[in-house]
Amino acid sequence: MKLVELQKKLVAAARLSAPDDRVPYAFEKRIMAQIAARAVAERWVFWTQGLWRAAGACVVVAVVFGAVSLFAPATPDNTNDLSQDFENTLLASVDQSDVALP
Protein backbone atom coordinates (compact mmCIF):
# COMPACT_ATOMS: atom_id res chain seq x y z
CA MET A 1 0.00 0.00 0.00
CA LYS A 2 1.18 3.54 -0.77
CA LEU A 3 1.60 4.93 2.73
CA VAL A 4 2.69 8.40 1.62
CA GLU A 5 -0.42 8.72 -0.52
CA LEU A 6 -2.63 7.46 2.30
CA GLN A 7 -1.01 9.97 4.64
CA LYS A 8 -1.66 12.81 2.16
CA LYS A 9 -5.27 11.71 1.72
CA LEU A 10 -5.94 11.58 5.46
CA VAL A 11 -4.26 14.94 6.08
CA ALA A 12 -6.44 16.40 3.30
CA ALA A 13 -9.49 14.90 5.04
CA ALA A 14 -8.46 16.57 8.30
CA ARG A 15 -8.03 19.91 6.49
CA LEU A 16 -11.53 19.69 5.08
CA SER A 17 -13.17 19.18 8.46
CA ALA A 18 -13.12 22.51 10.29
CA PRO A 19 -13.57 22.00 14.04
CA ASP A 20 -16.78 23.04 15.74
CA ASP A 21 -16.54 26.48 17.42
CA ARG A 22 -19.76 26.16 19.44
CA VAL A 23 -19.54 27.61 22.95
CA PRO A 24 -21.64 26.12 25.79
CA TYR A 25 -24.44 28.29 27.14
CA ALA A 26 -23.28 31.02 29.59
CA PHE A 27 -19.69 29.79 29.43
CA GLU A 28 -18.37 33.33 29.98
CA LYS A 29 -20.37 33.55 33.24
CA ARG A 30 -18.66 30.38 34.43
CA ILE A 31 -15.23 31.84 33.64
CA MET A 32 -16.02 35.11 35.43
CA ALA A 33 -17.27 33.19 38.48
CA GLN A 34 -14.04 31.15 38.50
CA ILE A 35 -11.96 34.33 38.30
CA ALA A 36 -13.91 35.90 41.19
CA ALA A 37 -13.63 32.74 43.30
CA ARG A 38 -9.90 32.52 42.66
CA ALA A 39 -9.41 36.17 43.62
CA VAL A 40 -11.07 35.55 47.03
CA ALA A 41 -9.07 32.35 47.55
CA GLU A 42 -5.84 34.13 46.61
CA ARG A 43 -6.55 36.89 49.14
CA TRP A 44 -6.93 34.24 51.88
CA VAL A 45 -3.76 32.49 50.75
CA PHE A 46 -1.88 35.81 50.85
CA TRP A 47 -2.94 36.55 54.46
CA THR A 48 -2.47 32.97 55.66
CA GLN A 49 1.03 32.78 54.19
CA GLY A 50 1.94 36.16 55.68
CA LEU A 51 0.70 35.22 59.14
CA TRP A 52 2.50 31.87 59.08
CA ARG A 53 5.73 33.60 58.10
CA ALA A 54 5.28 36.15 60.91
CA ALA A 55 4.59 33.36 63.40
CA GLY A 56 7.71 31.54 62.24
CA ALA A 57 9.83 34.67 62.66
CA CYS A 58 8.42 35.22 66.19
CA VAL A 59 9.31 31.65 67.17
CA VAL A 60 12.87 32.09 65.86
CA VAL A 61 13.31 35.36 67.80
CA ALA A 62 11.92 33.76 70.98
CA VAL A 63 14.24 30.76 70.64
CA VAL A 64 17.30 33.00 70.07
CA PHE A 65 16.55 35.19 73.10
CA GLY A 66 15.77 32.13 75.22
CA ALA A 67 19.09 30.55 74.25
CA VAL A 68 20.97 33.80 74.96
CA SER A 69 19.40 34.19 78.42
CA LEU A 70 20.00 30.50 79.20
CA PHE A 71 23.59 30.22 78.06
CA ALA A 72 24.87 33.76 78.76
CA PRO A 73 27.59 33.76 81.49
CA ALA A 74 26.24 34.90 84.90
CA THR A 75 27.81 38.09 86.35
CA PRO A 76 29.99 37.22 89.39
CA ASP A 77 29.16 40.26 91.56
CA ASN A 78 25.98 42.16 92.09
CA THR A 79 27.52 45.60 91.75
CA ASN A 80 27.11 45.52 87.98
CA ASP A 81 23.58 44.17 88.14
CA LEU A 82 21.55 46.36 85.82
CA SER A 83 18.21 45.42 87.38
CA GLN A 84 19.43 46.43 90.83
CA ASP A 85 20.73 49.77 89.52
CA PHE A 86 17.43 50.36 87.72
CA GLU A 87 15.44 49.63 90.91
CA ASN A 88 17.63 51.92 93.01
CA THR A 89 17.22 54.77 90.54
CA LEU A 90 13.46 54.27 90.28
CA LEU A 91 12.91 54.12 94.03
CA ALA A 92 15.47 56.80 94.96
CA SER A 93 12.81 59.46 95.54
CA VAL A 94 10.76 57.12 97.78
CA ASP A 95 13.87 56.22 99.79
CA GLN A 96 14.74 59.90 100.23
CA SER A 97 11.17 60.80 101.40
CA ASP A 98 11.35 57.95 103.97
CA VAL A 99 14.57 59.41 105.37
CA ALA A 100 13.11 62.95 105.51
CA LEU A 101 10.18 61.89 107.75
CA PRO A 102 10.63 62.67 111.49
Binding site: A18, P19, D20, D21, R22, V23, F27, E28, I31, M32, I35, A36, A39
Partner: peptide, 19 residues
Amino acid sequence: DSASFEPLVVKYSPRVFAT
Protein backbone atom coordinates in the same frame (compact mmCIF):
# COMPACT_ATOMS: atom_id res chain seq x y z
CA ASP B 1 -11.91 45.98 36.86
CA SER B 2 -12.12 42.24 36.26
CA ALA B 3 -15.66 42.54 34.78
CA SER B 4 -14.07 44.09 31.67
CA PHE B 5 -12.59 40.67 30.93
CA GLU B 6 -16.02 39.22 30.09
CA PRO B 7 -16.40 40.83 26.62
CA LEU B 8 -13.01 39.35 25.68
CA VAL B 9 -14.17 35.90 26.82
CA VAL B 10 -17.38 36.27 24.77
CA LYS B 11 -15.51 37.41 21.66
CA TYR B 12 -12.72 34.84 21.57
CA SER B 13 -14.26 31.73 23.15
CA PRO B 14 -15.42 30.29 19.78
CA ARG B 15 -11.82 30.35 18.48
CA VAL B 16 -10.43 28.86 21.67
CA PHE B 17 -13.08 26.12 21.61
CA ALA B 18 -12.30 25.33 17.96
CA THR B 19 -8.60 25.02 18.82
